[in-house]
Write a protein that binds this DNA or RNA. Structure first.
Lengths: 201, 201
DNA sequence: TCAGACATGTAAGTCGTTACATGATTCA
DNA sequence: TGAATCATGTAACGACTTACATGTCTGA
């Protein structure tokens, strides 16, 4: 049963940081969590409404005079409890479908040229991604330790906090999730090397 | 467009190995590809019918006299071409939603006890999985090199081939996909260690 | 004889993506 | 003035899961 409604809890969890609009949520996910999460408007807005109707969040209109229409959602006490319950639930680890692995596996009955091409393209993509992640990680690492708060960070974090102590903690979390991305890519690249060696025989 | 119909091409690819029934396909996926792929009957049977109606596969009834009803599907020339075209297409790398990462990220505003519990449970699961994969890998590795073909392998491979040369090649492919699983888990475990260290500070 | 594997399929529901539709504000 | 960004939403479709329904054969 259940083990679903991931969007619901993802949004609830983000609202536990601070009140946000649907647009804010989309941006935070796209810019900050993009290496392990995604959301789209088609899910976000209906889910926010459903959170309100279940009393897990409240909706407030913001910016009346001259400003753009904007609805900000805040988590309620009930919402916070629901979120914490979800956190404590065992995390299901469903099979993650890996299309590249599938292609690799299925290409092996054919002449090896196709497999080699596949692996090479993958390697190139992953290396580019690794570069990107490592650049972000460097910035985050610096911001974690230094007093100075580089402006580039706003682009990565999106969730900005005024207190330096909180900022450092937030940088740390972002940094650690990025590390998972980096370690995973490195594992994939090692695998490519193994495969390349194995195919040469 | 497209970048979808993964089930379609997965099945088509499996049929390119040898003719199979829906039930066979399910078993091969469950037993041999379970660390990177899954399929369920609700998808398999309708997809097979659709492959037939698109002339990418043909359906034959098998086992008329006394035997169980059984429909075996074979790939056609058109099917084989469609499969090869798909293999050559660039493999989209959509964001893979990682619920554990999400929980980790979202738990970091709370007292660290919850985060620690989360990571520990994850570590335990991943270690168990690693053990399992490594045991399979050992068997496959032995079968790749040795002349002797251990019977346990039938359970892992499901696709058995009579010719020893083909058998070795198939073991190699299975082994290499397993290696990806192993390297990935090891990366995840390294990440857990990093996080544990970081949380102690 | 009865459990478990073999075997095929359908229906309902959930989840997620994509495209569409609309309109305000800001800044170059 | 026109492009980019801010901002909210809906509709249609496609993919996937789960539960259900049915029946056969094999071997302990």
């Amino acid at each position: 049963m259940a083990a679903k409604q991931k969007t619901r809890y993802a949004i609830l969890g983000l609202l536990s940081w601070k009140p946000m609009s649907g647009y804010d949520i989309k941006k935070v996910v796209d810019v900050g969590l993009s290496h392990f999460w995604n959301e789209n408007f088609g899910q976000i807005y209906p889910t926010l409404e459903s959170l309100v109707s279940d009393e897990l969040a409240t909706k407030q209109e913001q910016g009346s005079q001259g400003k753009r229409k904007r609805f900000v959602y805040s988590i309620t006490g009930k919402g916070r409890r629901a979120f914490k319950t979800w956190l404590k639930e065992p995390t299901a680890m469903p099979v993650v479908r890996n299309e590249l692995q599938l292609k690799f596996f299925l290409s092996c009955n054919l002449p090896p040229a196709e497999t080699i091409r596949l692996i090479r393209a993958y390697q190139t993509d992953q290396k580019a991604l690794l570069d990107e992640y490592q650049r972000s990680a460097t910035v985050l690492r610096a911001a974690m330790n230094a007093e100075a708060y580089p402006e580039e960070l706003d682009e990565i974090l999106q969730i900005t906090s005024s207190k330096p102590s909180q900022r450092a903690a937030q940088c740390k979390v972002f940094y650690l999730t990025l590390r998972q991305g980096i370690l995973s890519i490195q594992a994939r690249l090692s695998w490519c090397d193994e495969v390349a060696k194995s195919l040469k025989e």
